[in-house]
Structures are given as C-alpha cells and as structure tokens.
Design a protein around this nucleic acid. Sequence first.
DNA 1: GTAGGGTTAG
Length: 780
Amino acid sequence: MRNRCVNRLRLVHTSSIRLRRSEQLEERSSGCKNLNKKKKGKIKSFSITDGEVVKWNMGISEHMRSGQLESALRLFETMPRRTSVSWNAMISGYIMNERFGDARHMFDAMQERDLVSWNIMLSGFVKNRKLSDARKLFDEMPEWDVVSWNTMLSGYSQNGLLDEAREIFDRMPSKNSISWNGMLAAYVQNGRIELARKLFESKFDWEKVSWNAMMAGYVRKQRLVDARMLFDRMPERDEVSWNTIITGYAQNGNMLEAQKLFQESPIRDVFTWTAMVSGYVQNGMLVEARKTFDEMPQKTAVSWNAMIKGYTLCKRMDLAKELFNAMSCRNTSSWNTMITGYAQNGDIDRARSMFNEMPQRDSISWAAIIAGYAQCGCSEEALHLFIEMKRDGEKMNRSTFTCALSTCADIAALEFGKQVHGRLVKAGYEMGCYVGNALLAMYCKCGSIEEAYDAFEGISEKDLVSWNTMLMGYAKHGFGREALRVFDLMRMKNIKPDDVTMVGVLSACSHAGFVDRGTEYFQTMEQEYGVIANHQHYTCMIDLLGRAGRLEEAEALMRSMPFEPDAATWGALLGASRIHGNTKLGEEAAKKILRWSPIILACVKKVPGYSWIEVRNKVHTFSVGDSVHPDKERIYAFLEDLDQRMKKEGYVSATKMVLHDVEEEEKEHMLKYHSEKLAVAFGILNVAPGRPIRVIKNLRVCEDCHNAIKWVEIETEFAVSGLPDYGMLRERTQENRKIRRIVEFSAGPTETKFATDSVGKQLVEGLIIVDEIQAALVFV
DNA sequence: GTAGGGTTAG
C-alpha cells in the first residue's frame, strides 16, 4: 500500500515536471501568438482562474484532513494548474497522516518553495522528532519568520533540549505571545520551575493562559503555596484557573481546601467535579468519591474512568467492572483502566481477554498489557506483545520502550534488547534521558558491560540512578576497578552517593581485593555521605574480609551487626569458609542458610530451576533433566562425552551439593542434567564461534555446574567472566588474547540476590536443542 | 486555500 503510493508519487513528480514544461512551452508559444487574438482566446479556455485553484487546494486539504490520501493525490494530479499552496497542502497533508517519507519526497521535488513550504517541512521534522534534521533545514532556509522560530523553539522544548530552546528564544528578532508562552511552557513541562518563574517575572503583560501555565507548574511541583499566591494575584480568573488550583489541592491531599474552593468557585463545570472525584480517589476516600460522582450534574468518560480507577486501586475489581459495564460513554481509557486494574490485581488472564476484546487500542493499552505480563514474570509474552504492537501499527512511545527494555533486562535477552535499542534510536528517542537508564540497566543485566558504558555515556543528564546502575553493573560483573573509577568520577562531579552506591562500592572493593580501601569506605560512609550501614553493606564487608582469608574478623563483624544476619550474610560467610577450608564455620553457616532457603544450596527440587539462552532471537528455556526435545539423546550424548573426558582428567563431581537422600550415582545423574548444563551445551553447539554464550538462570548456579563449566574453560584455554574469583583469570586470558567465547551466567528475575557468572567455551562440533519454551522474538 | 503555542479532569 505504502509502496504503491510512493510509486504513484514519483509518477506525479515526473508528470508535474512534464506539465511544467508544457506550460512553459505554451507560454512561449502564446508569447508569439499574442498578436493572434483567436489563438490567445483558445489558450485561455484551457487555464483556470485563481479562484478555481483555491477551490482545488481546499479540496486537497479536506481530503487530507479526512485521511483520504488517494483522492487528495488524484486531485493534485488532475488539477489544471498548481500553485505552491497546492504543493504545501499535499506536504502538510502527508505529515498530518503520518506519511513523513512521502511528505519529504514532495518537498524535495518541489521547485519553487515558499516560506510556508519550509515551515511545513520544519514542523514535519519536529513532529517526527528528527531534531537534528530540523535544525539542518532551519539553517538552510532562505529566510525565517516568527513561525519558523516558534516551530524550532517548540521542537527543542518537546525534546527537553532547554538550552537550545532558550538559544532560539534569545536569537529571535521578534517575539509574539506564542514565543513567550512557548518558552514558559518549555520550562514548566520540563520541570524547571525556577527558570519558569524567572521568565514569568521578567514581563508583566502575560495572558490568562500564561498565568494558568505558571500556576499549573507550581501545582505539578507540589508547591501549593506558590500556586495559591499566583491564584490570588491573578488579574483575571477563568474556570481553568479555578480548576487548576482545586486540582492542586485535591492531588496533594488537601481535600478540605479543595472542598472550600469548590464551594467558592463561580463556575463548577465537569472539570471541577471530576477534579473532586479523582481527588477523593487519589486520597483513598472512596465513599466521598462515589457520593460526588453520583451528585455530578453531568459526567464525561473521564469522570467514570476516575471512579473505576478508584475501585481498581482498592482491589474492588467487581465494582470496577460493574461501573464499566454501566458506562455508555466508554472510551479507550476506560478499557485501559480495567486492563491495568486486572493486571495489577494479579489477574493477567482477565486483563488479556479485555485487551483482546477492546474495539480500539492505543499505546497505553499496549503498555498496560505488556507491563502486566512483565510484572507477573511472563517476560516472553511481554516481548511477544511488544512485537505484535509494532505489527499492529501502534507507535512506540517512551514508556513502551522503557518497559520493553526492562523486560529484556529481566530475562537478559541481549539480542532482542539490542534490537529494541535500534528501534529506539530510529524512533528518535535517543536524545531524551528518560529511557537512558532503562537502556543502561538492560546492558548491565545482560552482562554486556562495554555497551552498558556506551549507554551510560550517552545519557546527557545523568541522575543518581544512572551512576548507581553503572557502578553496580561493573561491580556485579567483576570489574572492581572500573566500578571504583565510576565512584571517583561521581565524587569529582559532586554527586552525593546513597546507600545503593555504597553497596556497589563495597562489593567492587571485595571483587578487586581492595580490603583496606573497602574497610575505610565502610567506616567513613556514614560520616562522609550520611549512609548508615544496612544488611547489604555488612554482607559486602563480610564477603570482603572472608575472601581475603580474614575469617575471624568477618565472623566478628557479623556477630556485631546491629541486626540479625540473614541468608545472604551467612552465605557470604559460607563462601569464605569453603574457600579457606573452615569446615566448622561452614557447617554452621550452611545450617542457618538451609533454615531460610534450601534451594540456595541444592538447586534441585523446591523452586524449579530454569536456565535459558537466547540464540538468533529465540529464547530457549531448559529445566533440570529436560527431555522434551526429540534430539535429547544427542544432547545427553554430548554431555556424557564431556563427563567422561572430565573424569579422565580427575574431576570429581561436587555431589555434596545435592543434599537429597539419594544414591551417589543418582546424585551425579541429577547434576549432569542441570538446566544450566543443557543450556551451555546448547549454546556451545549453536552460537557462532567468537560470540559469547550467555546463559541466564533464575537461581544461583550450583557449585558443580560452576566447576564443570570452569573446568571446560580451563581445559580448553578459554575465558571467563564474572564470579569474582575468576576476575584475575579473565584478565590473564584476555592479555593472552585467548578469549574466544564467554559463557556468562546472569542473575535471573527472582528468587535470588546472588549474581552468578561463569565460563565456558567451544568444544566439539554439533548437537541440537532442548526447546521447551519458544519465543520468536523477531521484528518483522 | 497551506505553516507555529500555551492552561484544567484519567
């Protein structure tokens, strides 16, 4: 369809060029024939009056406005004479109908552009968030008027580029009220309330809307006192002013003042009433909300939706549904509210069936259902829907991108995440820093640390979350030095660390073996940054001391903790006891841990362990002893062969890890078929040489698998990533340039706070897959 | 006849 139109457009261009030539020919010949009155009259009968051209142009616009692109084009093609307005109407029509490419083709083909043509194209670039293209076009323009400047200003403002917006504003040779209000809105919408205030105070003759905008800015920042002062000072108030201040009080929990103003207000329209209903809803006052709702003289869909939202929030889906069913003015938001309600109350199936039933979906509907699946752990389905959304033609917005990225992070679907990243850049969202943190977190959780750093650097306005994510990312993947470098950078830039930062710093010290430095940070962090040590900080310190062989100090620190040690704390001690062969302490720790969570030690039974691997955009999931795939025998043969070779080299299974009462051989059997081994085997056999094998688990990798994979790696001189003990090995092998493949274990979505990473490599040539859950994560 | 902006309820 689209291609056909583009082709037709090309035809239009050639035919219009042909037309122009023939018009010129006619003019030339008519110039000769001016003397001949008969022929002049004949020619005149072919042309149309200016008034008729205007009618044709209006026809084009009307068709474009009603989405009839084909008939607009037909008019354009068949009209006897075209002016720049005809072209402009076509270009603007294409932009209006989200056919930017066609608009651009036409603009490029246009011979005599006027200022309006340039302005239309400029706004086309702005609407499609192609800011750098817009700027290029702006600089190319032969002349500017106030519309050109205002378009550029709003483009920058909409993309949060306030410095650029201000530059435009300052450079404008003349400003109208649109320029002033545009700059004010730029500050208000981007949360820069102080700059907005400064601008507002620099001028006296503001319009009513400007006062309202400034007041709304204060309300959004919860500065009710300032909002109220403005309200009291306003030269004239309209209903928007009253509604804004009433909403302000209602949304900030002051229902008494909201009620008072509601009584005082000269006009109570639907907005006023709805503001009261949603105010009650947001403050959990459902009875008052319903009373007001029933009293309302008239209701819009928004009023109904607010009430429904109230019921979903207090988990009364039955009442929400009742209201939803009774509604005659149901709109997409009503459906969206119900879908979100079901999803957040744990009923994803009902949410899905409503999603399927709804007559029309918007980006919020997709975001709601995708987030619903993501939150209940159905990550594959969430990503499936993300692809479906694209197929359905729904435009992705910031929140769907953020949601998709964090879902990718949950299941460490790196390849898919990269594609989302690509789409993100293509959609023009790379400028905003909103998605930056999601992108960074995705690369971190997928263990792709170099790309994580690129994403980090790409965030123009880094907040504390950005810094912490990067720092923790480095720390979790065994890059202690890099993590500490990030911390140094933070302090250079005067960014105040919080408790999360310090967890990252301490675990980085632990991984890098900086015992003294870590101890110093631990001891001074309260004084320096006001961070009081919590469970996690203590656990990091116990890990740090334990790894360094200072077991007694570690144990003493644990016993001096101002709170009871938890499984993670004991786990750190257990790890250290194992490394340094302190059996007694190890046993005590193991007993304590088993009390909380047997699965941490024995990754069999209880919570089923899964491993999954993403190969060529498919996520392959494996469970222990998986036997679903028809080629399972080949997999087991592969693992059997591996096992034999390892035994020959003197490897002994860590059967002590399986604490079940089963025969030794049976234990070994269970370990051999652990899901991670299946996934690693699958990866070795299916991932192209030279590319990392990334296996993700929902539980901690068991020691046996860990050792087995390490063994595989050492035997074949391949490399390592991750677990702190392997940090050195990684560096060494990297120096030797022997890294060809890395098997990485990343922590999965739930159940464990332990991030586990390990190693693998390519062995022999090929076997196949156990493919239990398939997700075709392919963009079309 | 074609181009730019701002305020209130989900």
